[in-house]
Design a protein around this nucleic acid. Structure first.
Length: 583
RNA sequence: CGGGGCGUGGCGCAGUCCGGUAGCGCGCCUGCUUUGGGAGCAGGAAGUCGCAGGUUCAAAUCCUGUCGCCCCGACCA
């Protein structure tokens, strides 16, 4: 491909709107163009990379026995009503129409994911255990009404997703969900490894099946919006929502101080109270009122900790918890919002383990404008329920005692054991050998294809631009022909281009009438892994120069040797450029 | 949804406080020179100043409304 006949709108200047490296570089390299908030067009260079990532995903999915299909992006809202997800997804579910009307537009949604659609298909055609298991997948544009798209293509309202769904008669054993789950897990490792992504697999919030029912594939980057938590010894990794912490020891720093009510006017937040009383936030017991299944539920955590609502709901054995509104809080505590405390509180209380080892603590007095000090858990109030209900923080340890490390990251893939949620709701049943009907057991497996791209850029860039892994680079090689008016240069560059193309190498010939520095900068910006420089200087010595983008290593070779050498370099890179999971 | 910022040639920005000929850099077009790290000179094209009202002799600038984009937070199957 000749540069002058392709379409690569690079720019020197970084748009101020773009904050994260992948976003800035994708714009500067002419890879994407924003259409509206949360939706991007992929320009030719970007499209080539996107297609390559997609091809790798497709190859590995096929290899793992999944079958590709293509589902509609427009869905009837009725299907979503049947699974209860219209309410569950809220505004994330994008609807056509202006809302309110009862025409077809208002009853049509744009698919944010396809559990409902695939389950309906399987329900219609699969009725016997003999047809199971089966894994179906597609690579398709998804639509989500994200409240706040951000960070370029890392969080958008329209994105390309590979979504796979598996159906089984059983969980364990041959043909069971666990087997396919493991196969998909392995396929994901192969995909991210081939794409050259540094990734970590973490335990994620699991669904109804529990245990090892969900894993996320994370790429560490400061541009991310998730946190992964790893044990320093590599024994444990989980996302922040899921991370378990080892119980804290009692610091034995108590003086068994007496209870004392103190006037704390206008101090209702942790910061205000600790500032007012001259104590640390960690000396306070945070008392948060939730509503769970229609009843109040009180959570106690240390002042500098955060309640993890997922953990809380699980500990309380309720389906979900929501923060109580002020009237309920006032009813439960008998005080204004901000003065709740466990002492004398009559409600179901679940305490975080860290609270049980606090001494001489401060809490709300359940009386407006008053707190109490000298609170000693166990002495001044009883623990009925104790659990791990908080997010891990710096300084915590993994359950095995190893210190926890926190890293920002983005999620590029997620594998999930669904169970029978959708098959139950939509009646996707099969008949077993005895002619008895059962709901199918399901798994689902997603990959954000755009995020593979952005993640690769986040992981592989420098001050000069992108440095693509060979497997997803838009071209393998770029030829910088340094003086387009020099016939020996243009002829040799043209010949190298033709020969490389004939050898199956994807080659871009920079045939623009531009100065050398300009071409070098652009070549580095768009991140082509190998650069061939054809210039008078080298030709005087009878050589062309071959430089690798990442290492900056230069080899000078005779032009007739260049094609074979490069073909081998590309083949070797495609074979050996693999990443291992980070532990 | 709450808080903040910004909308001015394709891109990056100044001008807005204090109303009076719409400017700079990059890019683009033409010509000449130049070719190993984002060239130089000369000439040139290109902007309903987000949109809609209002005030005024006069609005990019003041007022009202509205739309969009970005950031922080909330939310995130």
């Amino acid at each position: 491909m000749k540069w002058t006949r392709f379409f690569i709108p690079t720019t020197k200047e970084t748009p101020t709107d773009a904050k994260v490296p992948s976003h800035q570089l994708m714009i500067r390299a002419g890879i994407i163009r924003q259409v509206v908030a949360g939706a991007y067009s992929y320009l030719p260079l970007g499209f080539r990379t996107l297609r390559k990532a997609e091809a790798i995903v497709r190859e590995e999915m096929n290899k793992a026995g999944a079958i590709e299909l293509h589902m509609a992006a427009m869905h009837p809202v009725e299907l979503w009503e049947q699974t209860g997800r219209v309410a569950a997804m809220g505004d994330v579910l994008l609807r056509l129409g202006g809302g309110g009307g009862d025409d077809w537009r208002s009853r049509t949604v744009l698919g944010p994911t396809h559990e409902e659609i695939i389950t309906e298909i399987v329900r219609a055609y699969i009725t016997s255990y003999k047809q199971l298991p089966v894994t179906l997948y597609q690579i398709q544009t998804k639509f989500r009404g994200e409240a706040r798209p951000k960070s370029g293509v890392l969080r958008t309202r329209e994105f390309l997703m590979k979504d796979a769904y598996s159906f089984h008669t059983c969980k364990e054993g041959s043909g069971g969900l666990d087997e396919t789950y493991q196969r998909m897990y392995d396929a994901y490792c192969a995909i991210f490894s081939r794409c050259g992504l540094p990734y970590t697999v973490v335990e994620a919030e699991s669904g109804p099946i529990g245990g090892d029912a969900s894993h996320e594939f994370m790429v560490p980057t400061d541009a991310g919006e998730d946190y992964l938590v790893q044990a320093e010894d590599g024994s444990y990794a989980a996302n922040l929502e899921r991370a378990e912490v080892a119980p804290l020891e009692d610091p034995q720093d108590g003086t068994n101080a007496p209870l004392k009510e103190v006037h704390t006017p206008n101090s209702s937040t942790i910061e205000e109270v600790s500032a007012f009383l001259g104590c640390k936030p960690s000396d306070l017991i945070k008392t948060i009122i939730y509503e769970a299944d229609g009843k109040p539920l009180v959570a106690l955590v240390r002042g500098n900790h955060e309640v993890n609502e997922g953990k809380l709901a699980r500990a309380a054995q309720v389906s979900s918890v929501t923060a109580a509104d002020p009237p309920l809080i006032e009813k439960v505590t008998g005080a204004d919002v901000g003065f709740a405390g466990p002492v004398g509180l009559n409600a179901r209380i679940i305490a975080d383990q860290a609270v049980t080892v606090m001494n001489d603590a401060v809490t709300g007095a359940n009386k407006t404008d008053y707190h109490i000090t000298g609170v000693n858990p166990g002495r001044d109030f009883e623990f009925k329920e104790i659990a791990d209900i908080r997010n891990a923080v710096e300084g915590d340890r993994a359950p095995n005692g190893s210190p926890l490390i926190f890293k920002k990251c983005i999620e590029v893939g997620h594998v999930f054991k669904l169970g029978t949620k959708y098959s139950d709701a939509l009646g996707a049943n099969f008949l077993d050998e005895g002619g008895k009907s059962h709901p199918m057991i399901m798994g689902c497996y997603g990959i954000g294809v755009n995020r593979i791209m952005a993640g690769a850029i986040e992981a592989w860039h420098d001050d000069n631009g992108i440095s693509w892994p060979m497997a997803i680079a838009p071209f393998h090689v770029v030829i910088c022909a340094l003086d387009m008016r020099d016939q020996t240069v243009t002829e040799l560059a043209g010949k190298l281009h033709d020969d490389l193309e004939a050898a199956g190498v994807e080659v871009l010939l920079d045939d623009r009438d531009a100065r050398p520095g300009f071409k070098f900068k652009d070549a580095e910006l768009i991140g082509i892994p190998i650069r061939i420089t054809v210039g008078k200087k080298g030709l005087a010595d009878g050589v062309v120069e071959i430089q690798t983008r990442r290492t900056k290593e230069v080899q000078k070779v005779k032009p007739e040797k260049a094609v074979m050498l490069i073909r081998d370099m590309v083949a070797t890179a495609l074979q050996t450029e693999r990443t291992e999971p980070i532990t």
